[in-house]
Design a protein around this nucleic acid. Structure first.
Length: 494
RNA sequence: GGCCUCGUGGCGGAGUGGUGACGCAGAGGACUGCAAAUCCUUGCACCCGAGUUCGAUUCUCGGCGAGGCCUCCA
């Protein structure tokens, strides 16, 4: 590989050279959506950012040597609430079971998510595991934690719970740099009597009849506990990252990779997940498997604001990906996926980003200046690779890309490198599909106009140009560099 | 209260201890019958104060401002 990839690591708060545990099996896990409602523009950021990283890793290490897992959280109390809200009457009259209602919510939301993300130009991760398909794996980790004295069974207000014992982990808080004592000083953690420590969190929780649940039995202090219940918020990521990035891949790993069991390279997500979500994942995984680290590098993207304010439902500025793509809610018009993607990458991933109409307009203007080209086997340009290799500096990469786009007006070689580079970023402008017959018709009109111009019949020539413009077809006159003849091309206005 | 970001020109936005990226928009020009596209040129900046330094936008401290986490949240 020609470039040294540097990544900022939240764990060390430093930028460092990325060294995969096994360069033939680079492994990345990113926290995906909870499928209870449309994904919003904030959800889109990590998806796009880590898609760029996925593409870069594939370029550097080879497509077959990168495994990317992004989970689908389909068990969550918000999902239950949504199922009851949308299908409560059907559940009440017996025409639908709770589980069916839940599946209706998660299935629909998940396919919407997949469609949205595809429109944003994101590749499919290698694995997109669902939490509900990994319940046995979660139960297994929880039992490990119980056996090793890192968890306990307690009786809470809603029945039995298995809780993680934060005090049992010497360096709990390493990612967020929080100390348990400080948390207690804040007194904002609800004191719950059944917890040994206020920071202890749920691994497994007993379910009522109106809640989804799975049969599980745990052994704690020599006694057996059968708890029909559901997993806590964090455990799925520990279970699924271990399954897809260690268990199912370990036989293929190099000796160096095998020497670091249960570990993987990169774990990503939004800034707000650092605490408690990622901190608790680390606690679960490291304690269950007796490792120092869960993932080598932890990466977190910054927040998205909308028109300068925090996005929230109460502010009324909550925008979903789908609304941007399909409705006129934001700025009075629809926005193509490429524009949203470029707008997102115009800011470095760790910086806060202010999503605004103005920003989208600028992204669209930029995109309109880029040539339509095929990625035809050329290598991405050094300037773009170099920028991305510096902690995913997409801003510099886009500017390098823009320079290539400008160079491509006169340099076919630059155009090929532009195409390969744009493809690497997932930003290759797609040729607009035009019906052949229509295209031939336009070509004929263009010819006719050129004849009229030769005859200096400008009024008639301009009439053709205006008519085409009204249909969204923009004519562009140029000069053949050799003959000096007028050459006219056309394109659909984007 | 604890922890953590950030503050650059009209806008977006990197970066750097020493004549001030870059893009968009603006202005001027070339080309054109006129436009568009393309090309060339160009103005405008580093929150405030103190300190370190020969020199700070860049380092340190303080202040002000914006935001995040600690509670479901990307």
């Amino acid at each position: 590989m020609s470039h040294t990839l540097k990544l900022y690591n939240t764990l060390t708060r430093e930028k460092a050279v990325f060294q995969p545990l096994d360069p033939n099996n680079v492994r990345m896990y990113v926290c995906g959506p909870t499928v209870y409602d449309y994904a919003h523009i904030g959800n889109a950021r990590p998806v796009i950012v880590f898609d760029v990283l996925f593409r870069l890793l594939r370029h550097v290490y080879g497509d077959a040597h990168v495994t990317y897992a992004r989970n689908i959280t389909d068990v969550d109390d918000k999902i239950n609430a949504r199922a009851l809200r949308d299908f409560g009457s059907k559940i009440a009259d017996g025409s639908m079971s709770l589980n069916e209602a839940i599946r209706a919510v998660t299935g629909k939301t998940e396919s919407q998510f997949q469609a949205d993300v595809k429109a944003l130009g994101c590749l499919e991760p290698t694995h997109q595991p669902r939490a509900t398909d990994n319940i046995p794996q979660m139960i297994e980790i929880i039992q490990r934690l119980l056996t090793q004295g890192h968890a306990y069974v307690a009786s809470g207000p809603e029945g039995h719970e298995v809780l993680f014992a934060t005090a049992s982990m010497a360096d709990y808080g390493q990612l967020s740099k929080r100390r348990l004592e400080d948390q207690q000083a804040g007194a904002r953690v609800a004191v719950e009597a059944h917890k040994m420590n206020p920071g202890d969190f749920v691994l497994w929780k007993q379910s009522a009849d109106t809640e989804p649940g799975w049969a599980a039995s745990f052994v704690f202090e020599g006694k057996s506990f059968a708890i029909y219940g559901r997993p806590g918020w964090h455990i799925e990521c520990s279970a699924m990252s271990n399954r897809y990035l260690w268990e199912e891949i370990k036989d293929r790993l190099s000796p160096q990779g095998k020497a670091r069991p249960h570990q993987f390279d990169i774990h990503g997500g939004g800034l707000d997940l650092i605490f408690p979500h990622h901190e608790n994942e680390i606690a679960q995984s490291c304690c269950a498997y007796d490792t120092d680290v869960m993932a080598t590098v932890w990466m977190h993207n910054g927040f998205v604001q909308v028109e300068g304010r925090k996005m929230s439902k109460s502010e009324g500025n909550f925008v979903t990906i789908n609304e941007l793509l399909e409705t006129e809610k934001f700025g009075g018009r629809k926005w193509p996926g490429e524009v949203l993607r470029l707008a997102m990458l115009m800011t470095h991933y760790r910086e806060p980003i202010d999503f605004s109409v103005k920003r989208l307009e600028e992204a669209e203007r930029l995109l309109a200046k880029w040539p339509v080209a095929e990625a035809s086997g050329a290598e991405p340009d050094e300037s773009v690779l170099e920028a991305l290799s510096d902690d995913l500096n997409t801003v510099a990469a886009i500017q390098a890309l823009h320079a290539l786009a400008q160079a491509s007006h006169s340099d076919p070689d630059a155009k090929a490198r532009f195409a390969a580079s744009a493809d690497l970023l997932g930003l290759l402008p797609k040729p607009v599909e035009v019906d052949e017959a229509i295209a031939a018709g336009i070509d004929a009109l263009v010819e006719m106009r050129l004849e009229l111009l030769k005859a200096k019949n400008f009024a008639e020539a301009d009439r053709i140009r205006n008519e085409l413009a009204e249909k969204g077809i923009q004519l562009k006159d140029g000069k053949d560099p050799v003959t000096g003849q007028r050459v006219t091309t056309w394109e659909l206005k984007r």
